[in-house]
Design a protein around this nucleic acid. Structure first.
Length: 283
DNA sequence: CGTCATGTTAAGGA
DNA sequence: TTCCTTAACATGAC
């Protein structure tokens, strides 16, 4: 589920559903997902806290918690990893397979499920303190982008995916953004001219905003099924006929033709991931 | 059977 | 020290 637009859509929906609700209990079913602290420590800290706000930076989501007497808030951080999903159930008579953590509220349950267990629930703030600038924040300027992509031996795409430099772009949207800006994923960032740098910044903004709007347009119902379950999921294209499709330009389109120039989209391995690109548009 | 998958990070090398 | 590359984590879809 997990790049910036999907997490942002989830954040907006969760914020309206969870604000001012109280955490009554927590049940950790997959202890691997709660790390590095122990599940008991987590439970002791968060039970009886109230959720004041749901926040996000990059792909990290957190519930801002307050103890009933205390003024200060602290974050309960949730990262979805590759397969994490969050949804709300009225009861827990049947929990989905691979449920990892169940948060009990007064009249409902917030369920975190994660088959691959790459996701994480934690009180340890190291992971958000070391993040780079959020790709949708107003601090993500031309200067910020320039300082991230120059003075390195890494390829431009590797740089875009480095969360310590820019928070929010993953493999899908890094491919998409570079195609939109018509820039090769394999070049060094230092070789980008000023105009191309502007194109790239704009492509990042437009692509991410469009995807957030797309996600908000989906009809989600938080029932915890694979479809319409409260998650903006990139696999939605395989659901109902009247559902909008996520229109990727290059990602997952190896062998298909580029919509700009008709060339065949290629796939190559780069930093252990698949990079999809148009060899004509992105020279 | 084999290959691929939206992500992070510990460990090792330069 | 810092910066970079690789392998590993665990399960499912095709």
């Amino acid at each position: 589920m997990p790049e910036l637009p999907e997490v942002e859509v989830l954040r907006l929906r969760l914020d309206s559903l969870l604000a001012n609700k109280k955490l009554v209990d927590v049940d950790v079913l997959k202890s691997r997902v709660v790390r590095p602290e122990l599940p008991k420590f987590l439970k002791d800290k968060i039970v009886n806290c109230t959720i004041s706000k749901v926040r996000r930076r990059g792909k990290f989501l957190w519930l801002e918690l307050k103890h009933f007497q205390s003024e200060s808030a602290f974050p309960l951080i949730i990262h979805l990893g590759m397969t994490g999903r969050l949804f709300i159930q009225k009861n827990i008579k049947s929990l989905p397979k691979h449920s990892a953590v169940v948060f009990k509220l007064n009249n409902e349950y917030l369920v975190f499920k994660d088959p691959r267990s790459f996701g994480r629930v934690t009180l340890d703030t190291d992971c958000i303190e070391n993040l780079g600038v959020d790709a949708l924040s107003s601090d993500f300027t031309e200067d910020a982008l320039a300082s991230v992509i120059k003075n390195t031996s890494q390829s431009l795409k590797a740089r875009l995916m480095n969360q310590k430099k820019i928070a929010g772009l993953g493999n899908i949207y890094s491919c998409e953004v570079l195609h939109k800006a018509k820039i090769s994923p394999f070049i060094k960032g230092s070789s980008l001219c000023a105009n191309k740098l502007k194109d790239l910044l704009k492509a990042i903004h437009v692509t991410l905003h469009n995807q957030v709007n797309f996600g908000l347009s989906l009809d989600l119902d938080f029932k915890g099924e694979y479809k319409n379950d409260g998650l903006f999921y990139y696999g939605t294209k395989s659901t109902q006929k009247n559902q909008l499709q996520e229109p990727f330009s290059v990602y997952g389109r190896e062998g298909e033709s580029c919509r700009n120039c008709e060339s065949i989209i290629m796939r190559e391995t780069q930093i252990n991931r698949s990079t999809y690109f148009c060899p004509e548009c992105q020279k």
